[in-house]
Simulated assay, not measured.
Amino acid sequence: MPDIINFGTLELRFLHSKDDTGGSVDIFEMTLQPNARMPIPHYHDRWDETIYGLSGVSTWTIDGQQTDVGPGASVFIKRGIVHGFTNRSTGPATCLCILSPGVLGPQYFTEMAKLLSAGAPPDPVKMKETMLRYGLVPAPAA
């Protein structure tokens, strides 16, 4: 049974993780509701990321360039490159996310979901600490 992690406007469904692929890949479906966005643009230096559009349209900002990803479209995010995403459309957008090698797993997303659903505004210090512990480096504010 795939792990499903819900952030409210963002839902992840893990299909494979570092735990069942021997660290080769993490693969998950991500569904963004309208106006959903990545809370903190970031980069990672231990893995590359490929995003493949399944339905709807999400907008990815990669190294300052915006790209719409719809069904059948894809983007590659090389490690070390700052990126973020949003869903500016009026309907949900779903994409397949492939992290290679698989070093993140569902654990990071489970921890972040708990921080974001605590009922109070999220604690930026705790969010940054969690990101850094898992190898995600928050981008400096522009």
Rank of each mutant, 00 (worst) to 15 (best):
G105D: 05
R79H: 07
C97S: 09
N35H: 13
P124F: 08
M127S: 05
T59I: 10
E49N: 07
W60T: 00
T21S: 06
M30R: 04
L96W: 01
R88M: 10
G84P: 01
G72Q: 04
P138H: 12
M112E: 10
L32Q: 04
R79E: 02
I98F: 07
P138K: 07
P41S: 07
A118S: 12
L99R: 02
L10S: 08
A139C: 06
A142G: 15
P106D: 08
L115C: 06
F7E: 00
H83Q: 10
F109C: 06
R37P: 02
Y134W: 14
K126F: 10
A36W: 02
T59H: 07
P39D: 10
G102T: 11
E11L: 02
M112R: 08
F109R: 00
G70K: 00
I98D: 01
D3I: 12
F76N: 13
D45H: 13
I51M: 14
G91D: 11
D20N: 14
M38K: 01
D123I: 11
T130R: 08
P106S: 10
L132T: 14
P71R: 05
G23Q: 06
H83T: 03
F85P: 00
I51S: 02
L115S: 03
D123W: 08
F14K: 04
T50F: 13
H83V: 03
H42N: 05
C95F: 13
M30S: 11
M131F: 09
L12F: 10
V57P: 01
A142Q: 15
G119F: 10
L104D: 05
I5D: 00
P39K: 07
L10K: 00
D26V: 10
K114R: 15
R133G: 05
K114D: 13
P39T: 12
E49C: 05
G91E: 14
M38T: 09
T130M: 09
V125N: 12
